[in-house]
Design a protein around this nucleic acid. Sequence first.
DNA 1: GTCTATATATTCGATATCCTCGAATAAATG
DNA 2: CATTTATTCGAGGATATCGAATATATAGAC
Lengths: 108, 108
Amino acid sequence: MPVHLGELEQLVLLAVMRLGRDAYGVTVRREITERTGRRMSFGTVYSTLNRLDEKGLVVTRLGEPTAERGGRRKKYFLIAAAGRHALARSLRNVRNMAEGIDPSWSVS
Amino acid sequence: MPVHLGELEQLVLLAVMRLGRDAYGVTVRREITERTGRRMSFGTVYSTLNRLDEKGLVVTRLGEPTAERGGRRKKYFLIAAAGRHALARSLRNVRNMAEGIDPSWSVS
DNA sequence: GTCTATATATTCGATATCCTCGAATAAATG
DNA sequence: CATTTATTCGAGGATATCGAATATATAGAC
């Protein structure tokens, strides 16, 4: 099994963490788009969420129907311990590599 | 053409920046492994470097033979302006998503 | 000088994983 | 049963990965 997080897996895991108990397909996609400007289809988001689930990096629970106006039940995602670890490693790697290379270059 | 940087592309670009004029296959691989612990074959490194080259994110120059003890000439890599921009965007996205989610979680 | 062994470095070909989308499906309410 | 909300599916492209093959340089034997 792959030990590394893909690019989008990283962003999706971060979104799941940010959203806490309100993380599901729609909100995850919105969070990423709002914070990064990155656009993607729902299919993309869900395939990533499901992959993270299969890897055991998130856990899911099925939501109750809301009283809003129909619509299928939500599938909520929560980050798992393994997900936290994988994310921490991944971010640490980037930080270690970026350390010392400074602001200037991120502008030009 | 894809607008996003893969996970490894990000690390390789950072290594190329760090190494300045001494960036080539062998040193890039070593830099990443030393700083992150991440192992990979040379084939992996070179395929990524070449992909970045095709995308115009790095530029190459061929080194002169050294007086060390045989061996093929080195192909040096330098980050291009487009590479800096892509990297800056990519890192900014991660930072924007990680912002506010703090220390505690990176431990547990 | 020129062969050949050896060291250094890069390329190649094949496969797995990740990303991506649009269309299809499912499940809830009025 | 029409509409809304949400998720799954199927197919194709991009990235990552490796081991083996290839290229190119020097040193030493002859």
